[in-house]
Design a protein around this nucleic acid. Structure first.
Lengths: 246, 246
DNA sequence: CGACATCTTGACTACAGTCAATACTAGTGG
DNA sequence: CCACTAGTATTGACTGTAGTCAAGATGTCG
């Protein structure tokens, strides 16, 4: 596993300062964290950790997208989590990872060695409080996704995934409501199928169908334009905003 | 919503004392919790809370099984969590519930009003630490279930559910390994289908098939005997122990 | 330009869903 | 004690959605 270290960035300038696990820390607590943090960058496709391995650090995603994947003996795989900037990787209090962690796009992590981080957690209530919040949000997202996997049609699944990503982009770029949303898919068709519990072919077919029906527009394979978010959300079968990954 | 109060039980005698959210509290902390706790019992089928409603308390499940359900406008439903004894219900720091909570069997809860519980959390590190652990475990269980919903066949889904429940019973009753396991299903066929993302008919057919193949034996509709756990687990497509809900 | 990844499309198949009839069980009241 | 009902479960026949297998198109990078 080759990982590249990157020069450090001051916490106060960090893009995920106000959402990550450190977001509720005061200056004093932050400086303690700053002392033990280090950065790592992984190229797209790189493995970050494998099931059963010890992971000696925990980390916040700073940029890029990482995925958590579970695999059956016969090779069937399911992505059980997409980790986006400010999401937290790793499980304090337990060393083994339960799934494969990989970089979906190029990913930069803000890492902390597990031991010192766990010690800090005991003395820093703001840290554990925020971590609990983040974990509860992830639990909500996972449960929302159970509905997608268990009950939605292929078309609805695709629309659900696209609307989640589109909504995140819209929020990030402050796109006004009722305006078209524009973004790059951070996933290959294959990764999409693994996240949605479908085959690659079905994903491709449904993408074509949504395009034919004018719900989405494609430029190349990866760049997507949604002229009318309302319609996309309606295709997803959701009443209002689901809020997964939000 | 009718709920019946039950006379209080001393925390020191509580059956879930060593697994629930209170399990790491010392005597002093426990007595604070004891002051604000109260019991509620719901008959099977009763609603405990509805999506969007304010839930003014959080609770540990003491006995019975509760379920968390998400519903789409057109009526499709998915159970996104089975809450068993020692599991924690409700979300400190947020009042609205994200899903319907209902009693699957008769359920007794050990409840705390939200406000005092949240105040205790700030001053009681053992409480928030244990809550984080419980939440992380639930997140693992939810992710494990995503693999079941996204990638397993109907037969494997049924076998997965049965082996999870059977394993819990075996642990509870200290059944020696390599011995037959015996238990009552706490779910109707309909609830099973909602948990597994299947139809009631498919559940019924696969139960019959597993019975015909000698993987399980049925006494009445609800009582199940697993002569050989190894075979059941093999049918679930799992290599080793999944550990969901464990 | 050519080679490999990724993606699309088509034809066929199969697994689970739908609709419908029937069976079983438990509880109620005559 | 049996008959009736309501809820729950099983089984059958048929259909439809997504999976499988396979060919070909598009895109990217050396």
């Amino acid at each position: 596993m080759v990982a590249y270290k990157k020069s450090s960035v001051a916490c106060s300038e960090c893009q995920i300062r106000n959402r990550a696990v450190c977001s509720q820390c005061d200056d004093d607590e932050l400086s303690k964290l700053e002392k033990i943090k280090f950065y790592r960058t992984y190229p797209a496709g790189q493995t970050i950790a494998l099931t059963g391995q010890d992971m000696d650090f925990v980390a916040s995603v700073v940029t890029g997208v990482a995925s958590l994947t579970q695999t059956m003996e016969d090779g069937r795989t399911q992505i059980v989590g997409l980790m986006l900037p400010s999401d937290f990787l790793g499980r304090p209090g337990r060393q083994g990872v339960m799934y494969d962690v990989a970089a979906t796009t190029e990913v930069t992590l803000c890492c902390f060695h597990r031991k010192p981080f766990e010690e800090l957690m005991v003395t820093t209530p703001h840290l554990i409080q925020r971590l609990l919040e983040i974990t509860l949000d992830e639990l909500d997202a996972a449960r929302e996704w159970m509905l997608v996997l268990g009950r939605k049609t292929a078309r609805e699944k695709i629309a659900s995934l696209l609307s989640i990503i589109a909504r995140r982009y819209a929020k990030l770029h402050k796109t006004p409501p009722n305006k078209a949303v524009d973004f790059d898919l951070p996933l290959t068709r294959d990764a999409m199928s693994d996240y949605l519990g479908l085959t690659l072919e079905t994903v491709s077919r449904q993408m074509s169908a949504l395009k034919k029906d004018g719900i989405i527009e494609l430029e190349g394979k990866r760049h997507i334009r949604v002229p009318d978010m309302e319609r996309l959300i309606a295709e997803a079968g959701d009443d209002a905003d689901g809020g997964v990954l939000s």
